[in-house]
Amino acid sequence: MKNFIRIIFLILSFIGHQFNSYAAEKVEYLKTDWSFKGPFGKFDRAALQRGYQVYNEVCSSCHSMKYLSYRNLTQTGGPEFSEAQAKAIAASFEVKDGPNADGEMFLRPGRLSDKFVMPYENEKAAQAANGGAYPPDMTVLVKARGGGVDYIYSLLQGYEDPPTGVSLDDGVYYNKFMYGNKIKMSNQLSDGLVEYSDGTNATVEQMAKDVTTFLMWTAEPHLETRHRMGFKAIVYLIILTILVYFSMKKIWSRIETEV
């Protein structure tokens, strides 16, 4: 039994190690403490609401959020805006609907059931407006990058003057956390760029953290439920395992005495 567990453990840790090594280029990302990390991690509501504000005022002019609906903003485990707030947010966007009775498309104020309005009609339009680079959709962006939240958080603060010897084309910027260090997005954040309604000081660091938290939620909207359910499931499994273990001992004792 001991041997058995030892071997299983070795194999698991080997596999785990392989996955760590997947991230071939190891960069030291900026560290911050994320409230949603760990088995009991939860989102910081206020950070999510502020993060939405940063996304809305800064990112959303180029980056779409196509799998998210306005109704999600009210959902438990998310920013938990009140229904009235979310309705007001939705109504502040114009949504294309139709065709109407005359067969024409028309614009109407957004509703909770609408998906987030996209900044561009399509990917080609997005590329055309951004010098050929497509600003990626942000809904699952955190999960689509090897470094996850730490990467996004660092990237937003990683703009620097290029070291001597590195020449940059027009519309290309130097970022020490970007893969290959060249990025087509210019530095977006500057101190005091947005005015937080809760009075939080909008430093670059604060905004980067808030918007990254928001992006983590858009990528994993059920994270809190998952953590909660996982804890219950594992506690349950451990209890059942103990019960089965003693049942097993009892049952096997019937023949052990004979042997």
């Binding site: 349950y236 209890i239 059942l240 019960l243 089965v244 003693f246 049942s247 009892k250």
Partner: peptide, 8 residues
Amino acid sequence: LFTATYAV
């Protein structure tokens, strides 16, 4: 013990 195991 067996009943508890079954129930759980």
